[in-house]
Every structure is written in C-alpha cells, then in structure tokens.
Amino acid sequence: MEFQPLLPYFASLLSAIIVGVIAYVFFKTHTDNEEGRRRFLIHKDAQGKILPLRLQAYERVTLFLERIDPNSLLIRIKPTSGNLDTYENALIGSIEKEFEHNLTQQIYLSTESWNVVKTTKNATIQLIRQTAMNEKVETSSKLREMVLNHFMDQLTPSQKALVYIRKEVSELY
C-alpha cells in the first residue's frame, strides 16, 4: 500500500487539527477571562454592599467592648446594696446580656476578631470573679475599688481588644 496519495489528506488533517487546537485554546482562555471578570464584578458589587454592614458590626462590637470595660462598667452599674454576691452577679449579668445582644455581629467579623471579643468578655468576667473571691473583698464597694485599682497602671482586656479591632478595621480599606 502506498502512502503517497494519502499524504495530502494527512497534511490537511494535521493543519485542521492545529487550527482546532489553537481555536480551542483561544476560546478557553477567553471564556476563563470572562468568568474571572464576572466574578470580580460580582465580588466588587458585594463588597460595596457588605462593607457598610461590616463597619457597622465593628462599631457595635466597639461599643460592646467599651460597655464591658471594667472602668465604665463599674461606674455605670452601681451597687444597690453592700451584698458582694448580688453586685458580682449584676456585673456578670450585664456583660452576658451585652454579649448576647451583639452575638449576631460575628457574621461580619473575622474569626480572629470574634475570638478576641469572646476572650475579652471571658477575661473581664474572670477578673470580676477572682476579685470577688479575694479574702480582702467583703462588700460590693470594696469589689469596685479593687477592680478599678487593678487597672490603674495597665490596659484593660477591652482596651487591648480595641487596639486589635482598630487595626483590623484599618485593613478593610
């Protein structure tokens, strides 16, 4: 069998395959670029709508951190009696209530930020409990005094958390 008469057919077939491969690569690249462009535009549109919600969530969390800061918490919630346990429960109850009120904000915060908020809440509650268990603390007034004195020369957990939140918000822009 002779291949001479088939050679023009193979040459035509080879050139058709090359043109087909080039066309496939071109259209594949084009459709991938278009898909990427569409995704970018959708993401950009979503960012325009979500960014204000995220900023609002950070504002709410900032307010929460300010409200549970021992310096403001102890001034805002005054003891109604000298009973230490009642005052301790009122302080912790206020912190828990504030936290529950702002629980939905975690949707818009990063996981790290939300963990910082939870850690701050728990650290503040733990500080109040530990101070209340101190033998020198017998009344609600003494509890207030001891907690406030504890943070005279150092940052409160809320202040540390606010530094982290500010840094993260500055990265949103």
Rank of each mutant, 00 (worst) to 15 (best):
Q4N: 10
Q4P: 00
L7N: 04
P8I: 11
P8N: 08
Y9S: 09
Y9A: 08
S12M: 09
I17G: 06
I18N: 07
I18P: 03
V19Y: 03
V21A: 13
F26Q: 02
F27D: 08
T29L: 05
T29A: 11
H30V: 10
T31C: 00
E35T: 13
G36K: 10
G36P: 00
R37T: 15
R37D: 14
R38M: 04
R39S: 07
F40P: 00
I42V: 14
I42K: 05
H43R: 09
K44H: 12
K44S: 12
D45K: 09
D45Y: 03
A46N: 11
A46Q: 10
A46R: 11
Q47K: 06
I50G: 09
L51M: 14
L53P: 01
R54S: 04
R54K: 13
R54H: 03
L55I: 08
A57P: 04
A57C: 05
E59G: 13
R60H: 11
T62V: 01
T62S: 03
L63N: 14
L65C: 11
L65A: 04
R67V: 04
N71T: 15
N71Y: 01
S72Y: 12
S72E: 12
S72F: 12
L73F: 05
L74P: 11
R76N: 11
R76T: 14
K78L: 13
K78V: 15
P79Y: 04
G82F: 11
L84A: 08
L84V: 12
T86N: 07
E88Y: 01
N89E: 14
A90S: 15
A90M: 13
L91F: 03
G93V: 12
I95C: 07
F99W: 09
N102P: 01
L103K: 13
L103Q: 15
T104N: 01
T104Y: 01
Q105P: 05
Q105F: 06
Q106P: 01
Q106H: 06
I107C: 01
Y108A: 13
Y108G: 05
Y108N: 15
S113N: 09
W114R: 00
N115K: 08
N115S: 04
V116S: 03
V117S: 03
K118F: 06
T120E: 02
T120C: 06
K121S: 11
T124D: 00
I125Q: 08
I125E: 08
L127R: 04
L127A: 14
I128S: 03
R129P: 02
Q130W: 02
T131A: 14
M133W: 05
M133F: 11
N134L: 00
V137W: 06
V137E: 06
E138V: 14
E138R: 04
E138L: 01
T139V: 02
S140E: 10
S140M: 08
S140L: 05
S141W: 06
K142H: 07
K142I: 15
L143M: 07
L143Y: 06
E145I: 06
E145S: 13
M146S: 10
M146Q: 14
V147H: 02
H150P: 04
H150D: 12
M152T: 15
D153L: 12
Q154R: 15
L155F: 09
L155P: 03
T156P: 01
K160S: 13
K160P: 00
A161E: 06
L162N: 05
V163M: 07
E168R: 07
E168P: 05
S170R: 05
S170P: 02
S170Y: 05
S170H: 07
E171Y: 07
L172I: 15
Y173M: 09
Y173T: 15
